[in-house]
Design a protein around this nucleic acid. Structure first.
Ligand SMILES: [Zn+2]
Length: 467
DNA sequence: CAGTCTACCTGGCGGC
DNA sequence: TGCCGCCAGGTAGACT
């Protein structure tokens, strides 16, 4: 968990506690974390005195009086505790250093991700883990960063998290830096201008420096030292502020994922796309709404169309034939949607099996669509069973479309239904009335097409104000 | 090779 | 109450 400011805080704490202390003996409780020859570990460090502790990026460097060097990376949960010799080890002690003052320094690491290496003083900087590091933001300038990233196709956030590009920045300070720089974290690194590189360098330096002054950020009960907390988490503007108002513009902060890392941003300040779900009653005008959004120039995604596409895939055909038999194919070899509709309306089991197969695929397609369009202003995604199939968490806002009974009948007739009344009654899947209150915006489609478009426009304009 | 996914670990938390 | 899946301040290695 610790990033540069937290590691710096740990370094200062270590200096206070173990500078000039001699290591009497060492207990290796988790040998796998030692990445250099384990047989050299104790012989190198026992009876050696700590004469300095340095830091490079997120690495701690212990210098000993026998020309040996211990490199320690805390990764997600590594920490150092100072215990009296008569105390029991902490619950996740991995390496215990017994000191010459009746105390022991415990390396504690719940998740066992941390690593240690022993090297010689004259060549430790050539150790692979250090040699490949990029510059810390303090030593870098915009030209350095620009040259490192202008050819990269990854997201800018991934680039500044890459320790071979900039070292010291982790998930918290990446989000903070991009927020302060008003840069969309989903932007491709190769689209970042020299001017923006300058913002990234300046802002990351300022943020890291302030964080160091506050003793780093303490989140989720991680303590760099017993009972000592950093204070910078109170000053964070992005990290951990999902669904809270932006401290600059008051718009709601949103959360997404970049390279598997949670990423919080302000859609307004950082120009990030908002994804709008369209939900509503059967035959309430969802498709018309989507068509209208598309005509306004926004990118749209329709689940119905997605299913149609999936049905053309060989994989899907195989699955459908397996489930429903050859009768589910039309004479031309395509999937007969009407046949399937009839089958699943009479068998809950078949329906569940089909949905369990299709829904995850649709979900992936929606995720892909959202991710590919992060630099749009707004995108619209029509999901007939938004809440019923738990797709609501995929989108930022949801527009619910309610329709009067006559409107539903009219829409069903216009799409060729011979028995609209029956169709409505048969449809038990859609539970709009139950979920209407969970929609962020509600539109009543009970008048003319112009009126419907007008209402949609009003909602879109409201949403545009938030980004 | 660059880009992407996953493994490495454990514990806490929310949902059922 | 337990059980399940998801999430966590990081990175290396194995893929395509
Ligand atoms: Zn903002």
């Amino acid at each position: 968990m610790p990033e540069l400011p937290e590691v710096e805080t740990v370094r200062k704490s270590l200096l206070n506690h173990i500078l000039n202390r001699k290591i009497i003996s060492i207990d290796i409780l988790y040998p796998n974390m030692i990445k250099t020859d384990i047989n050299n570990f104790k012989p190198s460090l026992e009876n050696a005195k700590v004469i300095d502790i340095q830091r490079i990026g997120k690495f701690l460097i212990f210098i000993f009086d026998n020309n040996k060097v211990l490199i320690s990376h805390l990764r997600m949960e590594g920490k150092y505790y100072y215990y009296n010799e008569n105390e029991k080890n902490s619950s996740h002690a991995r390496i215990v250093f017994h000191l010459d003052n009746n105390e022991k320094m415990i390396y504690d690491d719940t998740r066992k991700f941390g690593i240690m290496e022993v090297h010689n003083l004259n060549d430790y900087k050539n150790a692979e883990c250090l040699a490949k590091l990029g510059k810390e933001p303090f030593d870098a300038d915009e030209n350095y960063l620009f040259n490192k990233i202008h050819h990269l196709k990854c997201d800018i956030k991934t680039a500044i998290l890459d320790q071979t590009i900039l070292t010291g920045i982790g998930n918290i300070y990446a989000d903070e830096t991009l927020f302060a720089s008003k840069i969309n974290p989903f932007r491709k690194a190769n689209s970042i201008t020299l001017e923006e590189c300058k913002k990234i360098i300046i802002n990351s330096r300022n943020i890291l420096n302030k964080a160091i002054l506050e003793g780093g950020s303490t989140v989720s009960s991680y303590h760099p030292e017993n009972g000592v907390d950093g204070k910078f988490q109170l000053l964070l503007n992005a990290y951990g502020r999902n669904n809270l108002p932006c401290k600059v513009c008051s718009c709601t902060m949103h959360k997404g994922y970049i390279g598997g890392r949670g990423t919080v941003y302000c859609p307004h300040c950082q120009n990030v796309c908002l994804s709008i779900g369209i939900y509503g009653k059967i035959a309430s005008g969802k498709s018309e709404a989507l068509k209208y959004c598309s005509s306004l120039g926004y990118k749209v995604f329709s689940c119905d169309e997605c299913v149609n596409k999936l049905y053309t895939l060989l994989e899907t055909k195989k699955f459908v034939i397996n489930l429903f038999g050859e009768a589910s194919l039309t004479p031309l070899g395509g999937i007969d949607k009407h046949y399937i509709k009839n089958q699943i309306s009479s068998s809950i089991e078949l329906k569940t099996k089909l949905e369990n197969y299709l829904y995850p695929l649709i979900k992936e397609e929606i995720k892909k669509f959202i991710n590919e369009n992060k630099e749009e202003k707004l995108i619209f995604i029509e999901v007939p069973l938004m809440f019923e199939s738990k797709f609501n968490t995929l989108v930022d806002y949801i527009i619910g479309i309610d329709a009067s009974y006559p409107t539903q009948i009219k829409n069903l007739l216009s799409r060729g239904s011979k028995t609209p009344d029956l169709d409505l009654k048969l449809n038990q899947n859609n539970q709009f009335d139950k979920y209407a209150s969970k929609c962020d915006y509600l539109i009543h489609n009970n008048s003319s097409l112009e009126d419907f478009h007008h209402k949609l426009n009003q909602v879109i304009n409201k949403i545009l104000l938030m980004r």
